[in-house]
Write a protein that binds this DNA or RNA. Structure first.
Lengths: 223, 223, 223, 223
DNA sequence: GATGAATGAGGGTTCATTCAT
DNA sequence: GATGAATGAACCCTCATTCAT
C-alpha cells in the first residue's frame, strides 16, 4: 500500500512546462552549473516557499549570474519541477528496505510508515508543492496524477483483499482508496507542514489502525 | 459528528487582520456600500481565486470608487475574511434541519452529508480559502483553528462511543478524529475544488462507511 | 534687541491662505468647535510634524467629524496658521516682564534670554514652522517677514549704538543685524529642535558675549 | 576656519540608507547609466525640490526605463545622497586654491569666502538638503554630522587663538564655534536659498568682521 | 452647524525576462 | 556558456476634499 504524492515522472523531467529555451547542458561546465542551480533552488524554495521566492535569488545562491537560470530553465515552474525530481528520487527509496510481509496489517503499516517518513524528510519541499498545486494548474494536475497513481495501487490492493474475503465487500475500492489515501497524506501535511507535531509512531499507528478497521482487516493477532 | 472548516467567529469578524482604519459603517448608506463590497468581493474572488484577484476589481464590481474599499477594509486579507464570514453564516445552517438520530451511523452520515453539501455549495470560496491558507499565515492559522473545533467535537463523540463500548477502544480519540476529519474534508476538497466529480451520495456513503468501520460501529441493524 | 520668528500678524489671521470657505464661527457652539480644532491641531502637529500630519487626525483628536475641519479652515496651511497665532500670543509675553536696562549688554542679554526661552517653550511648534517654511512658499514668506521685523529693530539698535560711538562703525547695521539675528535663531533651532542640548544659561551667555563683542560693546563691567 | 555642511564621506556613499539591492555597477555601461541617473537626479531635484520630485522623472530625464533607477538606488533618500556626494566633491575643492595666510583675519575671510562661494554654486542642492534634513531623520543626522565637523575644526582654531592671547578667553570655544558657524551657514542659506540677494563681497566682509570682532581679533594692522 | 461616506488621482516599487557583450 | 544591466508592465494604497443628509 502506498500513498499520494510520489511518482517517477521519468520522461516528463525535461519537457514539463513549455519547451521554448535550451534545456540540457551539453558540456561538463554546463552540467555543473545546472546542478548548482537546482541545489540552490531547493534551498531557496525551502527557505521562502514556492509563492515567495524571488527567482533571482536562485542564481545568486548558486553563485552565477541571473541570466544563467534561463539557460536551463524556463521559469519558476520549470526549475521547481527539477527540484521535485530531486526529491522524488529520494522518496522512492523509502519502500525498498521494507521487508515485504504477507500480513495485510503489516503491509499497511509499512506503507504508512514509509510514506510518513519520507514526507517528514521532505516537509519543506512538500510545503512548496502544496503552494504550487494551489496556485498553478500545472502543479495541481501533477499532484492529481501522483495521487491517482497511489490511489490506483491501493484500490487494486483493496480489490484483492475483498476477493480474498478479508475486506468489507460493500466498499467501492476506488473511492475507499481515494478517501483513505487522502487521510494519510493530509495527516502528514498537517503534522509536518503545518507543524502540528505528533510523534511519528503515533501517526503510523492511528492511520494504520483506522485504515485496517475501515477495511475490516483485523490482522493476524485478532482472530 | 461534524467536519473541519466551520465556525461562528461571531464578534471577531472585523478585528481579524489589521485594525488600522475605520471599519463598521455608521449609517445606512455605509451599510449598503459595505455589503455591496463584500458581495462583489465574493464574486471576484470566486472568479479569479484568492491569489490572482486585482483588488481594484472589487470596488469596480460593487459600483463604487476604488478608495471606498479602504473605508471598510484594510486590504485583501481583511475583505476576504468578510467573505468567509458570509459563507460561514450559510454553512452553519446545514446541520439544523437534520433530524437528530439516535443511531450513530445515521449521525455520522448526516454530519458527513451536511459537510459535503455545504462544501459543494461554497466550493469556489473554499478554493480561495485553501489558496489563502497556503500563502498567508493568518489564514493558515484560521484554518487550523476551525479544523480543531471540528476535531475536538468529533473526538468527544468518539470518546463517548468508546465509553459505550461501541467503538474500538484501542484508538486515540484525538488522533482518530484528526485523521478521519482530515479524510472527509480532503475528499470534499478533491471532489469540489479539484473537480474530480463523484456523486454526492457516493461520497457520503463511502466516507460514512469508512468512518463507521474505522471506529467499529456497524450500525443498529448489524448486531 | 529681539530676534527672528516672532510677530503679531494681527490682521492676517483670518485671511492668510485663500479665502474660499466660511471661516469665523457665528455661534457659541461654532466657537467651541473651532477652538477644539485648533487645540487638537496643535497637539497633532507637535506629535507628527508639519509634513507628516494626516489632516483627518485633527478633527478626530478634537472629537468631531472629519468634514467639520473645512467649516473653519481651508486646509493644512490654514489651520497651521491658526496654531501659529496661538503660539505667538504666548511668545509676545516673554519680553514684558524684563526690566528695561540702560546697559546695552543687559539689553542684549535680556533679549536673547527672552527669545531662547520662548523658543524652548514652543520648540515643537517651531519645528513644524521650519518644516512648513521649507516646503511651502507661503510659510517661507511668513518666516522671512517675521525675521525682517526682528532684523529691522535690531538694525536700528545697532545704528543707535554706532551713533553713540559704542559700536564698531565699520559694520553695515542691516547686514550685521541679519547675521547676528540669524546666529541666535539658529542656535535656538539647533538646541531645541535638533535636540543638541546646551544649558539655557550657557546659550544666553555665549550669544550675548558674541553679539556684544561683535559690536565692540564691552559692557559696564569692562572699563 | 571652515563652515558647516561640508565633508568627505569617502566610502560610505552607497551604504547610507538601506542596503537592499545591488548597488555599484560592474561594467562600463553600468557606470555610464549610474552617472546619467545621478546627473539627471541633480537636475530634477534642483528643478522640483527634494519634497516634490516625482521619482520617475529621474530615469525619464536620464533616458532609461523607470525600473533602472532601482538597479543602483533604493529610493529617494539613496539617490539624493549620491547627488550630495557629487556636490561635496566640488565643495571640497573650494578651499584648496586659497593661499594660507598667517593673518587670522585673512584666514577667517578666506574660509568665509570659500564657504559662501561654494554655497552659492550649489544653492539649489542646498535648498534640497535643507528640505531633506527637515523631513527625513537620516538627512537631519547627516547635516548635524557635517556641521559638527566644521564646528570642531573652528573650535580648535578658537582654542588656539585663545592660547596665543589673541582671542577673548571668556568664550567657550565649542559654543562660540557653534554659534559663529551657524551664523555663516544661515547667512548663506538666507542669501542663496531664500533669495534675499546681498553681494557676495558684502557677505564675506560682514561675516568676517563679526567673527573677528566677536573673538576680539582685530587683524594685524589694528594693534 | 455637523456629519462621515465617497471620491479618485497619483506614484513608488518589484522582478521575471531578455539580450548585447 | 555566462554575464548582469536594462526593461516596463502591473498594482496597491493614501488621504485631502466634497457634499448629501
Amino acid at each position: 500500500m502506498e500513498h499520494s504524492d510520489d511518482t517517477d515522472r521519468s520522461e516528463s523531467r525535461e519537457a514539463g512546462v513549455g519547451d521554448a529555451g535550451p534545456k540540457r547542458p551539453r558540456t561538463t561546465r554546463g552540467e555543473r552549473t545546472r546542478s548548482a542551480l537546482v541545489a540552490a533552488a531547493r534551498r531557496i524554495f525551502e527557505r521562502d516557499g514556492y509563492l515567495n521566492v524571488r527567482l533571482s535569488d536562485i542564481p545568486a545562491e548558486a553563485g552565477c549570474a541571473s541570466g544563467t537560470l534561463y539557460t536551463y530553465f524556463n521559469g519558476k515552474e520549470d526549475i521547481f519541477e527539477a527540484v521535485l525530481a530531486l526529491v522524488e528520487d529520494d522518496m522512492l527509496h523509502g519502500d525498498r528496505d521494507a521487508a515485504p510481509s504477507s500480513d495485510p496489517l503489516d503491509q499497511i503499516r509499512s506503507a504508512n510508515r514509509s510514506y510518513l517518513e519520507s514526507y517528514q524528510r521532505h516537509a519543506l519541499v512538500m510545503r512548496c508543492f502544496e503552494q504550487a498545486a494551489v496556485s498553478d494548474p500545472h502543479f495541481q494536475k501533477l499532484r492529481s496524477m501522483r495521487a491517482h497513481r497511489f490511489i490506483e495501487r491501493n484500490a487494486a490492493a483493496i480489490r484483492r483483499l475483498q476477493a480474498e474475503g478479508v475486506a468489507d465487500p460493500a466498499l467501492d475500492p476506488e473511492l475507499a482508496s481515494k478517501a483513505l489515501s487522502a487521510m494519510v497524506s493530509r495527516v502528514a501535511f498537517s503534522a509536518y507542514v503545518l507543524e502540528d507535531p505528533v510523534p511519528l509512531d503515533d501517526l503510523v499507528e492511528v492511520t494504520t489502525r483506522l485504515w485496517a478497521n475501515a477495511l475490516w482487516i483485523t490482522g493476524p493477532h485478532t482472530p
